[in-house]
Amino acid sequence: MSHYLAKRTARVLFTVYLVATFTFGMIRLLPGGPLTTLRVKLARQGMDPDQINAYIENYQNIRPDATLLEQYQSYMLSVAGGDLGRSISLDEPVTNILAEAVPWTVFVVVVSTVLMFAFAVLFGAMMAYWEGSRFDQALTGVSILSASVPFYVLALLLVYFLGYQYQVLPTGGTTGLAVEKELSVPFVMSALEHAILPVASFTITGMGVQALAMRGNSIQVLGEDYVRVARLRGLADRRIATRYVGRNAILPMYTGFLLLLGFNLGGTIILERIFSYPGLGFYMFKALKARDYPLMMGTFLVITVALVVGAYVADLTYSKVDPRISSGGSNEAY
């Protein structure tokens, strides 16, 4: 087990290392990047080349006069030290911006993904149990419908109706402007109020696919011999529903949870733009618009790390909840 743990941990570090290298490559090699623009702009302002180089180095962790290898080394070292450079558009250290943003994004993504799965498991199991009934048909229809709505379409509709037209919920921000940023009841209430629409957009649109998956899994498990044997053994319906059907139907979805987490993390770029919710995605969007490469790559790196860590946790816990996955071969957890 510890051997596996070590191997799996090494893989996480290696993945992060590779992604950091990738961001370096993007910043350094992207054609027509902000460096050029900035350099031209500064030169026009009459700054001398040395100053320009120093300035740029500050933004990028990259010294233009060094060799590629030296640039790479110093970039990686500063990333490892938590220095992601300075945002060009916001003129602030990227790390500071992200430190503000990360908790909000994690909050929205985790809450919405967990809610999505909780509802999907519940509804999917109910659909399977009453398979073929009116209830099943209706809910299957609703699930299909919800699956065909992109989350941003729902987000736009929600913000249009509930935000602007009826003004029942806020249309932007993480908390009300008047609320002090400290752990207090008004702060928490305001944070929840502001998160309702973003979370609902993800949860409602993602639920359909997952509920249908749960329904399919449950139907399959309901047809398994061991469920039939369990009935003959006289087990209570509730025990069969939870320990037999529920557990064996949910397990295959566990891996989907991971993929979904990643998908939702990426999706925050669109979601947080619509709700003006200053999380990771919001700043990534800003960076994309302003061609602010340091901020862009910093956000990208952080999103990736969040995803990799999520995968790591899912992987390790999966081998705990599914006895068939021995700790060694849990590659299948994906």
Binding site: V19, M297, L307
Partner: peptide, 23 residues
Amino acid sequence: LMAIADFVMAIPGLPLIMILAIA
């Protein structure tokens, strides 16, 4: 192949596409 797949899977899709699209 699976190591490559694991790595590729670890990269969030939408942000990657956006960066490449900008580039």
